[in-house]
Design a protein around this nucleic acid. Structure first.
Length: 570
RNA sequence: GGGCCUGUAGCAUAGCCCGGAUGAUGCACCGGCCUUCUAAGCCGGGGAACUGGGGUUCGAAUCCCCACAGGCCCGCCA
């Protein structure tokens, strides 16, 4: 694709056209063609200057008109600035879907940050979006939770009891969240079962009773449910939430898994091993040639996870036009297996799979069983604590409650922004100092710019404790003959928001939103440093107030899309 | 061994899909700026032949091939 007109280099041109490609077939020198073209462009009010420069045709945009149109658009559309036209398709975004066996670690939070941000940006772009969390309450790890926690603590295997480090009375202290509490026994139980075949057998039996419905689901969902609630509480701190929860076991009981299996058995891909295990052949769908099998049922007849996941996806396709899954890169191959099973089940549609790289620690990969994990809650708590110290350092006038509230927004925002700003496929090495940075490319930097703008607007309206001034769009007469370069740069940044939303929604490149937020904040800070607003000359005051108001709005919209609180003061 | 992804200043990143005009930003470093709108800020400076090697092109960080390095995966687990 040939992009005829593109942004020119900073300071030289607002828009530029390269002549090289066009010049060649015409047998002309690009430099000459540029001169010709520049001469031929008719004078329009949008451009102040059209010039040839070494094979490029450079355009300068008329700043007053540009400012007038941009500010009018922002100030009339307000929180809807950037909103795309409604689109008829329904989209489902499944993300996070963490097994409710313990607390979320920071690595898994990347799934949430990417997924929740994508949901927000797709909504802004005009899609109707439903977010789903797939709750795994089937299989070994779910059974393990039931197995250990329905047994009185005194009856636990001693090594499990010791490794779980429960208090002497074995009761959960009120300040310990359910995910952290139940999660304690999980790794030692897993280790114990590995060592003890008899335990493994009784676990398998329990698992079977769960799947067959002998054990009522209310019974075995109790603990996963509690853990899930606790996980959701942590996610809420990061402004992430879900529209729907889909329980894996439901597909077992409504017969949909069985129906999938029946369909698949008629497929040419279908394969049954000598032992009676069932699989599908998928060497043509990216599975390794050495083991092209996607197993969906064990030889004892019980179903494997892929069978349930396919049933789940068929349900998604029955309700949605587009299905997006956010997965860790370790699930890439499984996603191909699901695609193969969907194919065998006669479903031609495929989920769009977005994968992201792991968050590792400087000393290596995070492992729950090795005890080398950083929990999301710990990161959020630490972020909160550091933010409290920062806020107190600069604001002595605020109440304790307000300091707490601001610190929570700043801390959680910093964490979310830190994870968001990196292109998803890149691995991240988690370092505390970087994750909890409150300056530079960070959420607090953007929040700070928003708070500055908000403060200016309140003061312009009369009082720092009152409502913000809401200027109407400036008329051309209000706009200075020659706006300051800092003003133009700011207008230019604001004008890019709608097309950015479009681009991010289209390409699912959510990290660009964080970068854009930083960009706008930086432009505002530069403007703020150089030019006065409140006590400026009367001929520019109205324009600057409108510019500040528009900037605040765009910052608020950007922060809204990335899921970070836009603060009035900090 | 095979497959997918990544490799850009001391560190962390954007740009790569869709090739263009002196490679952008943050942290760190050096030097400035709080008696007027919040210094979580601003201004200035040093620091990169974009992992290496070939190729395509008027032009390559960007496209193609090879090599090297790192991440992830290759279960009748989920």
């Amino acid at each position: 694709m040939l992009r005829a007109v593109e942004p020119g280099p900073e300071g030289r041109a607002d828009l530029a056209m390269a002549m090289f490609r066009i010049a060649k077939p015409l047998g002309l020198r690009p430099e000459e063609l540029a001169l010709e073209v520049a001469k031929a462009v008719p004078a329009v009010p949008e451009f102040t200057e059209v010039q040839a420069d070494r094979g490029f045709v450079n355009f300068q945009i008329e700043p007053r008109l540009f400012a007038e149109r941009t500010l009018a658009s922002v100030l009339t559309r307000k929180e809807r600035f950037g909103q795309g036209h409604p689109r008829p398709e329904r989209v489902c975004v499944e993300h996070t879907s963490a097994n409710p066996t313990g607390p979320l670690h920071i690595g898994r939070s990347r799934n949430t940050v990417i997924g929740d941000t994508l949901v927000r940006v797709l909504k802004m772009a005009g899609w109707s979006v439903t977010s789903q969390f797939y709750v795994d309450d089937v299989g070994r790890q779910a059974a393990m939770l039931v197995w250990i926690w329905t047994t009185p603590v005194e009856a636990w295997p001693p090594e499990v009891r010791e490794a779980a480090k429960l208090p002497p009375d074995g009761k959960r202290p009120p300040d310990v969240k359910a995910d952290h509490w139940y999660g304690r026994a999980y790794p030692p139980t897993a280790a114990y079962i590995k060592e003890h075949p008899d335990a493994a057998r009784s676990l398998a039996e329990l698992s079977e009773n769960m799947e067959s419905g002998k054990l009522p689901k209310e019974e075995y969902r109790r603990i996963p449910q509690e853990i899930l609630e606790a996980i959701l509480a942590s996610l809420r701190r990061m402004n992430a939430s879900f529209d729907e929860f889909v329980w894996e076991s439901d597909f077992l009981f409504d017969g949909s898994v069985e129906r999938v299996a029946e369909k698949v058995r008629t497929s040419p891909r279908y394969h049954r091993t000598e032992d009676g295990a069932e699989a599908v052949e998928a060497s043509d769908m990216g599975l390794p040639k050495e083991s092209p099998w996607v197993y969906f049922a064990r030889s004892d007849g019980t179903f494997l996870y892929p069978a349930r996941d396919v049933a789940y996806h068929l349900q998604k396709f029955s309700r949605f036009d587009r299905v997006i899954d956010i997965l860790g890169e370790d699930h890439k191959l499984h996603a191909r297996g699901i695609a193969a099973l969907l194919d065998a089940a006669g479903e031609m549609r495929r989920p769009e799979v977005l994968t992201y790289g792991f968050i590792n620690l400087p000393e290596g990969r995070m492992t729950t069983r090795g005890g080398r994990v950083v929990n999301l809650d710990d990161v959020l708590d630490e972020a909160h604590e550091r933010a409290v110290a920062e806020v107190k350092k600069r604001r002595e006038d605020l109440s304790t409650e307000e300091v707490e509230r601001i610190a929570e927004s700043v801390g959680a925002g910093a964490v979310r922004f830190h994870v968001l700003r990196v292109q998803p496929e890149k691995p991240i090495v988690f370092r505390w100092e970087e994750a909890l940075s409150f300056e530079g490319k960070s959420a607090p930097f953007v929040q700070y710019a928003h708070a500055r703008a908000a403060s200016l607007l309140r003061k312009a309206a009369g009082s720092d404790t009152g409502p913000r001034l809401e200027p109407s769009p400036p008329s051309k007469a209000d706009i200075p003959q020659a706006p300051h370069p800092k003003e133009i740069a700011l207008v230019r940044a604001l004008s890019q928001f709608p097309s950015l939303i479009e681009k991010v929604a289209e390409g699912r490149s959510v990290h660009l939103l964080a970068l854009y937020g930083h960009e706008v904040a930086e432009r505002l800070n530069e403007f703020y440093q150089e030019l006065r607003v409140l006590n400026s000359e009367p001929e520019v005051r109205a324009f600057r107030l409108a510019l500040v108001s528009a900037t605040r709005q765009v910052l608020a919209n950007t922060l809204g899309v990335i899921g970070v609180d836009a603060l009035e003061r900090m």
